[in-house]
């Protein structure tokens, strides 16, 4: 399919309320005005400028002295062109734990070493723990569960130099870093600092694979941040494990044989 307004082929879509093509959306927001007729008009004006036409203010509620909360339903006329959507598609196959362990055992012939940490002042270990801890997340066990992984979880507020040193000691194949706090782009600064330190400390072919994760990263920003992979919200340990064996074993082998 190449562009065009082919609604039947579903390249072009619109929001769906209860009928195909009705374009209905629901939004809520607060305006710093007391709740009265004028406030409702102000909400409608904003909705109009947002492209809701017609718009209905279905709920207003004053909060405190001079704020009003609105819920607005309305129709948008914007079209979404699916052929223009760019996302980071998963470019590695999802494997089962058994397959992952087997690949490491047969092809790497040693344990795959992973070092994980929250760096900077970020104390939210929930992400790294979900991926690494035996317990895992949403019923899926973490990397500690995989027999062929050797996992070191350094926990929260780890200095970059300490992380580099530990990665060296553990002969890490991959370093996993999670970042939750995003105030003043701390997650981006920390990640760049981390990747620069690894590039400085290791020759290119010895550098561990650098993987970051967190709810507010742009998964496409790998080159900007100097890392090999970025994982966003909802990533599971098996996804990370599949990626690691793909990047460190499957891909490296094929590059090697092609050369």
């Amino acid at each position: 399919m190449t562009g065009g307004v082919d609604v039947i082929g579903k390249t072009i879509v619109r929001p769906y309320g209860d009928t195909t093509g009705d374009g209905m959306v629901q939004v809520s927001f607060t305006l710093p005005v007391p709740a009265d007729k004028r406030a409702e008009g102000a909400a409608l004006q904003l909705a109009g400028k947002m492209g809701l036409d017609p718009a209905m203010v279905v709920h207003t509620r004053q909060m405190g002295e001079g704020f009003t909360f609105f819920v607005v339903y309305g129709r948008v006329h914007h079209l979404v062109d699916l052929s223009q959507v760019v996302v980071a598609e998963r470019d590695f196959p999802m494997l089962a734990a058994k397959e992952i362990n087997a690949l490491i055992r047969q092809r790497l012939r040693r344990k795959l070493s992973v070092v994980g940490a929250c760096i900077g002042t970020d104390a939210h270990t929930v992400g790294i723990d979900a991926i690494l801890n035996l317990k895992g997340v949403a019923g899926e066990k973490g990397l500690e569960y995989y027999r062929e992984f050797k996992v070191v979880n350094l926990g929260a507020q780890v200095n970059v130099p300490d992380l580099v040193e530990r990665a060296r000691v553990e002969r890490a194949d991959a370093v996993l870093v999670s970042q939750v706090v995003t105030q003043r782009d701390a997650h981006l600064h920390n990640t760049k600092e981390m990747s620069a330190a690894f590039r400085e400390a290791f020759p290119a072919h010895r550098r561990p694979l650098l993987v970051v994760g967190g709810p507010r990263f742009d998964e496409l920003a790998t080159s900007e941040l100097g890392v090999d992979r970025i994982f966003g919200r909802g990533t599971t340990p098996r996804e990370v494990a599949s990626y690691l064996v793909h990047a460190l074993i499957v891909n490296r082998a094929s590059v090697g044989s092609a050369a």
Partner: peptide
């Protein structure tokens, strides 16, 4: 929770 630091309206709700 887990989305933003609470907005005025979040707190009210």
């Amino acid at each position: 929770e887990a989305v933003v630091t609470p907005w005025l309206s979040d707190r009210d709700i």
